[in-house]
Design a protein around this nucleic acid. Structure first.
Lengths: 123, 123
DNA sequence: CCGCATCCTGCACGATACTG
DNA sequence: CAGTATCGTGCAGGATGCGG
């Protein structure tokens, strides 16, 4: 509760960027790319089976545009494309990991809170 | 790129929770509550002018259900309700701060990446 | 193999009006 | 003051098919 006051302000820029980097699929893609270093398009699809091809394309484009991921054309005929995590993307990955670790640690607590809330608000 | 292998797996539970805690408005609400400790409903509205009353209600309910925020009825006639950040919510705030700090630090780099990308993809 | 184009649907969110 | 109720809508995202 005490004022630290050096907390960064939340601007539209922040939200916009975070929205692009923490969207529905980016976590999964960054996670897989960090774990494997480099992956082909269909390899990613196999590793994240629930993702739609359209969504995977969109996610990769967005991450690429923001500099989190590098797209490398390996060869033509047959076309082969590799996606690699960019250095700045690894920093982001650390933050995502922190979020996941926090989530994992507090899931039970949250679960209890939900049960309490739902009970208090009738059912 | 090296395998740490102790990276937490991303499950549906993780996504669901993060979706609820990092949604469009939660950051702002948590931020304000952390900064001020406790706030009334309309005080929050004034501090986050762009938020709709409906969205603020929904956000507070969601945060409350997940145990991040505590709702305290201070008095009746006139009705007064205070929202306070819960202890577990402060932990989350630290993570959000980390995200904002990272974002602030890397915004220029991201901006350059975008310009490069947009240029490369015609215009 | 790596995508883009199209159609379709749900739902998140805003606007507005009303209540204890 | 602190909400609930209802309606309208934009758009993210799934399903499907085609193209280099």
């Amino acid at each position: 509760m005490q004022e630290t006051d050096d907390r960064p302000l939340i601007t539209g820029e922040h939200r916009e960027l975070l929205d692009q980097l923490l969207d529905k699929w980016s976590l999964h893609v960054l996670d897989q790319l960090c774990e494997h270093g480099a992956l082909r398009f269909n390899a990613l699809r196999r590793l994240i089976p629930v993702i739609t091809q359209k969504s995977l394309t969109a996610t990769l484009r967005r991450l690429e545009r923001n500099g989190m991921v590098e797209r490398v054309v390996v060869s033509d005929r047959p076309v082969a494309v590799e996606y690699r995590i960019a250095p700045v993307g690894q920093g982001l990955q650390d933050l995502i990991d922190a979020l996941l670790i926090w989530t994992t640690a507090h899931l039970p607590e949250v679960e209890r809170a939900r049960t309490r809330f739902d009970a208090a608000h009738d059912g």
